[in-house]
Design a protein around this nucleic acid. Structure first.
Lengths: 221, 221
DNA sequence: CCATCCCCATGACCTGGATCAATATGTCGG
DNA sequence: CCGACATATTGATCCAGGTCATGGGGATGG
């Protein structure tokens, strides 16, 4: 997914804001009066179960627009890192003289895009084993981070618990999946938050799971 | 979710159509030129994995609007039963003299609504055990079917394989979950497609999983 | 700069759901 | 109405991932 360069929204009333690490930006069920563009940092969108359980729906990166419900929040958003955003008044976005249609079409497309991405996310986490979910996550991350795409080096902005809740795994299982990929030579880790995809893993990107399994059968040196 | 009574769309170019059981209405990736309102029957929206795997995202019932992407299909839609729909030209929907804003706001809301519902669907299927997923499905169905809501009797339009793919279970596991709920007195079955929620199960609707587990500990007679 | 606390790693074990296999039971076309 | 095929049920066994427990290491904030 490519970072948007659209500026239509900037014709609406807008102002900057910051959120500290871990802070809730909005909660499910709240009335929706503001939408956001992420300028710096990382945000998670999530659904909280009755018990403490949490499903992370999506991570957002600089350039991403979020919170564009018109009535009521359907999920929560929290700052993964310290975050800088631009806030847009939804009321004023819906009243952009002459360009309202353009803005609304953009919102329909973004909402449908988010739906489609989530649909595929579900398909993955319900059908892939732990290690493959993780590889899929790395590839997804790479598509959102130009630097990672260029260098193959990923700096994870979130902790393992967040990744686990995104992939619907427990932290222990995630940890073992990391180790597995490292042992097999798909990734190299540096510290807790840094990793590089090896050419091995890069090759996997465009491959089918059948081929992935074949590769598993003959692990790298 | 309540059946919509909005008629704004009917001012756009529209025509009726039918699809036989099992037929694909549209496929992921296709250009999006038409949207639909379901008049009769049941439709499934799904994502197909590379291998034969399938994740059903949502079932649609009479009154539901679907296929309102503006550019490209992000998922597939198939007829679960024989189906009657009204088709609307998307181009003409986007060109309703004077009411375009109204229509677009409606589409944004529906797209966000679908996103929110899917987000909660994911949270359920990743956190609940098989039997509770099934109860949750019954309750969801009930909310979409006024007759079921009134009588507590559900006529399932889809087969077990579809339900399994919706709840992310294998048919064998689903079958055991059915049996479990029947044995415990939460449901009574009549034939393969008919079932009634007992007062036991009705009570569960508004309950927390903690209470559900407590009830499991002392099963009904 | 240091102490504390969260976060991550790893081992041992358990379990819910998947898988494999064998029947039943509907359902639909003829 | 009947035969054949698809769809459900049920049992036996397996295994990926969850759970529980413990120890080590880095980030963080005072």
């Amino acid at each position: 997914m490519v970072v948007s360069t659209t500026t239509v929204f900037d014709q609406a009333t807008h102002w900057p804001a910051r959120f500290a690490r871990g802070v809730t930006i909005y909660d499910e069920g709240e009335p929706s009066t503001t939408m956001y563009r992420l300028q710096r940092g990382c945000v998670r969108v999530q659904v909280n179960g009755h018990d403490g359980d949490r499903q992370i729906i999506s991570f957002l990166f600089p350039g991403d627009l979020f919170g564009f419900c018109l009535d009521q929040r359907t999920a929560s958003a929290e700052a993964v890192t310290e975050v800088e955003v631009t806030c847009y008044s939804i009321a004023s976005v819906l009243d952009l003289n002459g360009r309202t249609t353009e803005v609304l079409v953009e919102l329909v497309n973004r909402a449908n895009g988010a739906f489609g991405e989530l649909a595929h996310h579900v398909e993955k986490i319900t059908h892939l084993p732990a290690a493959e979910r993780l590889i899929w996550f790395f590839n997804w991350l790479t598509h959102h981070d130009p630097e990672a795409a260029a260098t193959g080096i990923i700096r994870l902005p979130m902790n393992h618990r967040d990744i686990a809740d995104y992939l619907s795994l427990k932290p222990e299982t995630l940890s073992r999946a990391f180790r597995q990929l490292e042992t097999r030579g798909y990734i190299q880790r540096s510290g807790r938050r840094g990793l590089a995809l090896t050419r091995h893993a890069l090759a996997l990107r465009v491959r089918s799971p059948e081929e992935f399994h074949a590769l598993e059968a003959r692990p790298a040196a």
